[in-house]
Amino acid sequence: MLNTLLFMLILFAIDFIFAITHSLQYVYSGSSGIPNLPEFMTVGLVDGEPFTYYDSNIRREVPRQEWVTKAVDPDYWDQQTQISMRTEPTFRTNIEVAKQRFNQTGGIHTVQRMYGCEWDDETGATGGYDLDGYDGSDFTALDFKTMTYVAPVQQAFISAQKWNNDRALLERFKAYQTQICIEWLKKYVSYGKSTLERTVRPEVSLLQKDPSSPVTCHATGFFPKGIVVTWQKDGEDMHSDVEVGETLPNGDGTFQITSKLMVKPEDWKMNSYSCVVQHKSLQDDIAVLLEEKNIRTNQGGISWDIIIGWVSSALRFAKSI
Rank of each mutant, 00 (worst) to 15 (best):
K293L: 08
Y273E: 03
N294A: 00
I286R: 11
M270G: 10
D284M: 13
E292A: 14
Y273C: 03
D267N: 07
E292L: 14
E266K: 06
Q283A: 08
K293I: 04
N298E: 15
K269N: 09
K280R: 14
N294M: 04
I286P: 14
Q278W: 02
V263C: 06
G300D: 09
Q283C: 13
V276R: 11
R296F: 13
V288K: 02
N298S: 12
Q299V: 13
N298R: 14
N294R: 09
E292I: 09
M270L: 07
P265E: 02
K269M: 14
D267P: 09
K269P: 06
Y273V: 03
V277H: 06
V288Q: 01
G300L: 14
E266F: 06
D267H: 13
H279A: 00
K280V: 05
N271C: 06
E266G: 15
L289N: 13
R296A: 09
H279L: 00
V288P: 00
Q283N: 13
N294H: 09
E291H: 08
S281H: 03
P265V: 00
W268T: 06
Y273F: 01
Q299R: 11
L289G: 03
I295C: 15
V263P: 08
W268E: 11
I286M: 14
K264A: 10
K264E: 04
K280C: 06
Q299N: 11
P265G: 05
Q299W: 10
H279G: 00
M270A: 07
I286H: 05
N298M: 10
I286E: 02
Q299H: 14
V263Y: 12
K264Y: 07
N298G: 06
V276D: 01
V277D: 00
P265Q: 01
N298Y: 05
V276C: 05
L282Y: 01
M270N: 15
N271R: 12
L289M: 11
D285P: 09
M270T: 13
E266H: 11
V277P: 05
C275A: 08
D284N: 13
E292W: 11
T297L: 07
D267Q: 04
E292D: 15
Y273H: 03
L282S: 09
C275S: 06
K269I: 12
P265Y: 05
T297G: 09
Q278S: 11
Q278R: 11
D284T: 11
L282M: 06
Y273Q: 00
S274N: 03
Q283S: 14
W268I: 13
G300Y: 02
L282W: 03
R296I: 08
Q278E: 04
Q278V: 04
N294V: 08
G300F: 11
K269H: 11
R296V: 07
A287I: 01
T297R: 10
A287R: 01
V277N: 05
E291L: 12
S281I: 01
N271F: 12
S272N: 04
D284S: 08
N271V: 05
C275M: 06
V263F: 15
E292Y: 13
S272E: 13
D267A: 12
I286C: 09
D267C: 10
K293Y: 04
D285N: 13
S281M: 01
S272R: 10
K269Y: 10
D285E: 15
P265C: 04
W268P: 05
S281L: 01
P265N: 00
Q299C: 08
Q278T: 04
W268L: 08
N294G: 15
L290C: 04
V288R: 01
E291Y: 03
Q299L: 14
L290N: 07
M270K: 15
L282D: 00
E266C: 05
